[in-house]
Nucleic acid binder design. Structure first.
Lengths: 371, 371
DNA sequence: GTGAAAGCGCTAACAG
DNA sequence: CTGTTAGCGCTTTCAC
């Protein structure tokens, strides 16, 4: 006797007191189906389906009767059945490929994830999370991600190492939005912050304060984030007429320590300002500057990039001038873009750029000047 | 003409060159089904199903033939169809109810999530993430979470505010494991770290160093974490014979600032040691102590709780003696417990306790003593 | 060992 | 407006 049959019998036995059924492990307390609701409301399965899916063509009195039964029974349609029949799961995946940086140690991804979760909640979508730590993880999980009937679409984090996965995903013909500008110029949907434009803004700001020797601290050379922020720096410098000094440019990893070590090196070039491509880099740079007996912003002005909320573990003593990027909103917009692609097709590819803004605080020196 | 029919026709047209089909938007490139594979391999659908599901009763030669076709076509079974037929989705949900603390600002949840994701990867489960920011979110998302056919089971974070959701979930009869000891003593499955035991250990350590006036900094009174860590403190104090001094106990929020402010207050009671119920609290306490011109550990010894990796944004200058809790492993174990409950039934409820360990570094003073 | 057949619970075309 | 009917693609008896 199949479970299904047992369930049916239990349904027939509906009139019996519950105690008769809970004798042994009756987890089989029949899950309600559309058909059950239909019977109770004296209508057909389709009508119940229409009511559940808020379709207009139902007489008000009938709708109310059905709604009452649904309310009373606490019925919810089975997700798998609905997905199978409609070919829509209302679930999207967030894929973090290996090497996009530790998910936990950087506050960026948690905030991004929070934004994406919020976007899903707002649109009644479910979020599937795939954190892939290694190539092995990627290979093992790929079938689950690309399999039909699970995800309507996918959000993938860009990053030099992740791009292999991105190509596989795009080839698998699943609606897909890349988070950040992907390295390879394949024609894909992506969303990014205006890295180049705002970097130029940051450097222009330093320039306007009379700085002549502006250093730049970059993240890994292979990332588009680094490349774009560097481009903005180059834009500003070349527009200013100041000759480019390659010795003022240095690449490292996006961390406090990276910033500290790089700044130590670049101090020999006697910069009067630093544009750090991330706040972590900026904090490290400030530590190096101070250790040298110099002060910020008097001797060297500093501007960062990110403006993420600091964790409750640390006291924020430094008020960094930086580029604010709205990570939470970025996540929400990413979800919206993906849903648009799912519903309206993926071609032609669409790119969304999210605005950033320069937040002037204490480390660039312009506040002091104003006094 | 339904999409299904179009697909079927396209399948029939399989021999035609692709260019004929890609004329306009043919996203309908037929997804393969078991039936297609069966036809290609010259067997029945059931046999293919058996092969896919690694069932033993298939002749080797047949198995190989089927496997070859699957390999060649890149076939993956449709997730929704499989879920509908088998009543198993191999997906679990991680639910973070409102008020469990900001998901992003604290490194705890990101690490926990990472651990859970890892546990899912290892067991070929998919992870659904539900971050609920408000009661409204909870109400709106609850049907999706509890609906059949989406999740096989659920991991819910405990917390004073979340317990309402927990009860609803338990009542909805879904396999469920609580992360942390829930406030209400309902008979549920949960996993927790040995808060009480290790807190006692921490305080015993301070006691063994000759401390007589040991203060305790706690988190919110309403959380089980605070309650259990307090119990451990009380255990140690009462076993030591030192009379309990209520003025050495203070509750605040789990943050650096909370620790700082509370320590400021408690300094008047002239403690010679502090047990902080979290590292953030400990860092704040140390700042307060130093501001008062006192030093750690010479004047006041400090022990924390958590030992989470610090973010790359901050330099870890303080080497805190603390209780290490293995958050990543905790996440993995939580997944394993949940899968066990899903597969073997939820009754009787099971509790898992994860071991912690005292990590002696510089702030308790025992290293100095050894020299 | 293998295939035929009966669902899983829902959506959606179609007829009325 | 509503009901009938035919699937969605898979698992799982049951018979051979």
């Amino acid at each position: 006797m199949t479970k299904a049959k047992i369930v049916r019998i239990i349904k027939i036995l509906g009139a019996l007191p519950v105690s008769c059924l809970t004798m042994h492990k009756v987890r089989l307390v029949a899950d309600l189906t559309l058909e059950d609701i239909a019977k109770k409301a004296g209508v057909s399965r389709s009508t119940v389906s229409r009511v559940v899916n808020r379709q207009p063509d139902v007489r008000d009195s009938v709708r109310e009767r059905v709604l009452a039964v649904i309310e009373e029974t606490g019925f919810h349609p089975n997700a798998a059945a609905r997905t199978l029949a409609s070919q829509r799961s209302f679930t999207i995946g967030l894929v973090l490929p290996k090497g996009v940086g530790a998910f936990f140690s950087d506050p960026y991804f948690p905030i991004l994830t929070q934004g994406i979760a919020q976007g899903c909640n707002q649109n009644d979508f479910t979020l599937g999370l795939f954190i892939l730590d290694s190539s092995e993880d990627e290979d093992r999980t790929f079938p689950r991600i690309s399999r039909k009937g699970l995800l309507d679409g996918i959000l993938v984090q860009a990053g030099s190492n992740g791009d292999g996965l991105i190509e596989r995903l795009v080839r698998a013909d699943i609606p897909c939005v890349i988070l950040g500008r992907p390295m390879n110029p394949v024609d894909v949907n992506y969303i990014d912050v205006e890295n180049r434009k705002s970097s130029r803004l940051a450097v222009d700001h330093l320039l306007s304060l009379g700085k002549k020797r502006i250093a730049i601290l970059l993240g890994p050379v292979l990332s588009t984030v680094s490349m774009d922020r560097k481009s903005g720096y180059l834009d500003a410098i070349s527009a200013s007429g100041i000759p480019l000094d390659e010795s003022l440019m240095i690449s490292t990893e996006f961390s406090e320590t990276g910033g500290y070590l790089s700044m130590k090196k670049i101090l020999a070039q006697q910069p009067d300002a630093v544009f750090a491509a991330s706040d972590a880099l900026a904090y490290g740079a400030i530590r190096a500057i101070r250790e040298e007996g110099l002060s910020v912003p008097e001797d060297i002005a500093v501007v960062g990039f990110d403006d993420l909320p600091v964790s409750p573990h640390t006291t924020k003593e430094i008020h960094l001038t930086t580029i604010h990027q709205p990570v939470l909103e970025f996540g929400i917009k990413a979800v919206e873009l993906l849903i648009d692609r799912i519903e309206n097709g993926c071609v032609p590819a669409k790119q969304v750029v999210v605005e950033t803004q320069l937040v002037v605080r204490d480390t660039c020196g312009s506040r002091i000047k104003e006094i």
